[in-house]
Computed example of a mutant assay.
Amino acid sequence: MSSWETGRFVYLLLLGGVLVLWFFIENRDSLSTKIKQLSAWALIFLGVIAGIGLWGDIRQTVQPRQAVFADQGRIELPLAPDGHYYVTLDLNGEPTRFVVDTGASAVVLTQRDAERAGIDAGTLAFYSQAMTANGAVKTAPVTLDRVALGPFVDRNMPAFVNAGEMDTSLLGMTYLQRFHRIEISGGRLVLER
């Protein structure tokens, strides 16, 4: 626990102690009823604290995820809270999260995702260049042996590994153009082959 968190915890304990003391002094006539009420408020307080602490897990559980309709040849991606569409692809046997980027001409991997997919970062030659919103970056061309999204499997997919820092790999047009239909409607991105 950091010193800042410890300070907050001590502050909350002191504040709670003062409130409990005031509660007992103010209501000393009917003490048993007040203890029941205090217990109810304590449980409410603990429930709120637990809800705040578990909010990230709760949000991941109720948040819509990508849906694969293999019999219809369709993938549906929900709009994320940050306004982007994310998809998880299987790269050479490793699940990898991408942001769908129709402004990117190619599939661009972070160095971390490339290594997870079995690409040796030490052998990469960053001789090509890509123009991004932040300027020019060095990239290394690679070939992904197997890329799978639900029932759709592509082999020998060209991609690039970014030499710079990126949070998430980009799923660009070299992959997206393999679908015969791309539609954004009602907060969902639909891909069909």
Rank of each mutant, 00 (worst) to 15 (best):
A40S: 07
G187H: 13
A125Q: 08
W4Y: 08
W22R: 07
R146Y: 06
D167M: 13
P64W: 03
V18F: 11
E76F: 12
G47D: 01
L13N: 10
I75T: 11
I182Q: 14
R193H: 02
T102D: 00
G83E: 13
G187P: 04
G93Q: 12
D101Y: 04
N162C: 15
F24K: 08
Q129R: 12
Q60R: 13
L124S: 09
Y11D: 07
T96A: 12
D82C: 08
T174W: 11
A42K: 02
M131G: 14
L124V: 14
M173H: 03
T143V: 11
D113H: 05
I182R: 11
R181L: 14
G135D: 07
I184Q: 15
D71L: 08
T168Y: 09
T132E: 02
P81L: 09
R59Y: 03
A117D: 10
F126M: 03
A70Y: 12
A140N: 03
T143S: 13
F45R: 13
T88H: 12
S30P: 03
V137L: 04
T61E: 11
G122H: 14
M166E: 10
T33F: 01
S32E: 00
R112P: 01
L109T: 03
S3K: 04
L77V: 12
E192N: 09
F9C: 05
E165R: 11
G135K: 11
D71C: 08
R188V: 10
A40I: 01
G93K: 07
Q129E: 04
L79P: 01
V142F: 04
L109K: 06
Y86N: 13
R146G: 02
L89C: 08
N156P: 05
Y86W: 10
G16D: 04
R65N: 06
G73E: 09
F126R: 02
L19K: 05
L14E: 15
S169P: 06
I25G: 13
T61N: 13
E76R: 14
G135W: 06
L191V: 05
G47L: 03
Q66M: 15
A104Q: 06
